[in-house]
């Protein structure tokens, strides 16, 4: 069969360096993550290579259970992390450039296009499961916290000293301030991205540009507001406002909203790239899966935010305050 000419519409791709380089970039990034956040501590002089590689002092392990805190920002770690991030970014840019070029070259036949759609849906499904993890954590902490602390009243009577290990009081973030604003911003951006999509379908490229541009701006605005909220919380930490390290609510709050924020950022970049492609004349009315994928992603991020707003900000905040 090898002799036959290709008679199918699938997209066979020539060898590409990006996946391999992604693996390398991931390794650098991973080592950077560890060195930056935890610090690498060679224990003895036995491994000179490691010593050369990692800049931590040899004495660190003597007080071995010392919190890893004072090693945050350990010298050298940030450089590796930065290098890994830059490498990853470069690889991704090149990779997606290739994809865009292939799309222009007509490699994305109808059947390939359907495949891309499946791929994107599956990707969003796994993102959803990722957030299921965080919400599950949050519900567990919120719903069963009292039950856990007072595991069994009978037990507590018998062993009063165990009551000491009860969790400290929970403080939550006020939902009706910046978070409300953020909700409105995101909902609005959901409509603008739909506007852009419809405009493009109807050949109104100018409208599409406006819609997409506004969406990107709203996305950036959201990130800005979120940043302000974090900074405020940071300054008020210890005065009753939740912070990452103060209690379980703070942890769940910051990690869940933080990962959501990261997704907003990714979505914004995704939409921004589509905006660039649009201004450069890419994306045709009949074929613009890139934009659709970005819009799907954006709606997904939107929905996650609504859940966050409903549960993390409103429902649990009020129930936990009391």
């Amino acid at each position: 069969m090898a002799g036959h000419a290709v008679e199918h519409d699938y997209h066979l791709i020539p060898p590409s360096p990006w996946p391999f380089l992604s693996g390398v970039a991931c390794l650098v990034w991973g080592v950077g993550m560890v060195t930056f956040f935890a610090g690498l501590v060679p224990r003895t002089g036995e491994s000179p290579m490691l010593e050369w590689f990692f800049s931590k002092g040899l004495d660190s392990l003597q007080d071995s259970y010392r919190p890893v805190a004072d090693q945050v920002g350990a010298d050298g770690g940030w450089a590796i992390l930065l290098a890994g991030t830059i490498m990853a970014a470069l690889v991704m840019i090149s990779w997606w450039k290739d994809v865009a070029a292939e799309s222009r070259a007509g490699d994305h036949t109808p059947v390939v296009d359907i495949g891309l759609r499946y791929g994107m849906i599956m990707f969003i499904m796994q993102e959803a499961m990722f957030f299921v993890g965080w919400f599950w954590m949050f519900f567990e902490l919120g719903l069963f916290h009292k039950m856990r602390a007072a595991w069994n009243t009978d037990v507590l009577e018998n062993a009063p000293e165990y009551a000491d290990s009860m969790a400290p009081g929970i403080h939550a973030v006020d939902a009706w301030n910046l978070p409300l604003m953020n909700t409105i911003v995101l909902l609005l951006s959901g409509t603008t991205v739909t506007w852009a999509h419809h405009a493009l379908i109807h050949g109104d490229r100018k409208g599409a540009k406006w819609g997409l541009g506004l969406t990107v701006l709203l996305g950036l605005f959201f990130t800005g507001l979120q940043g302000i909220e974090y900074v405020e919380l940071f300054h008020e930490r210890g005065e009753g406002a939740p912070w990452l390290s103060t209690d379980a609510y703070g942890s769940a709050f910051f990690m869940a909203t933080g990962f959501h924020g990261l997704h907003v950022l990714i979505g914004t970049i995704f939409l921004g790239v589509m905006f660039l492609r649009l201004t450069k004349g890419g994306l045709r009315p009949e074929k613009h899966f890139g934009l659709e994928a970005a819009a799907w992603y954006w709606h997904f991020v939107d929905v996650v935010w609504l859940f966050l707003f409903a549960f993390v900000y409103i429902i649990f905040a009020s129930s936990l305050h009391g």
Binding site: Q126, M129, F130, W134, A167, S245, T246, M255
Partner: peptide, 28 residues
């Protein structure tokens, strides 16, 4: 993805000054 979330929780719990998902002293 659920494992990934759990691993991230471990990672941030391990950083001092980080989160307390699994730390009973902080309600985790």
């Amino acid at each position: 993805p659920v494992l990934a979330a759990a691993l991230f929780m471990l990672f941030t719990d391990r950083i001092a000054g980080g989160t307390g998902f699994f730390d009973p002293a902080r309600g985790g």
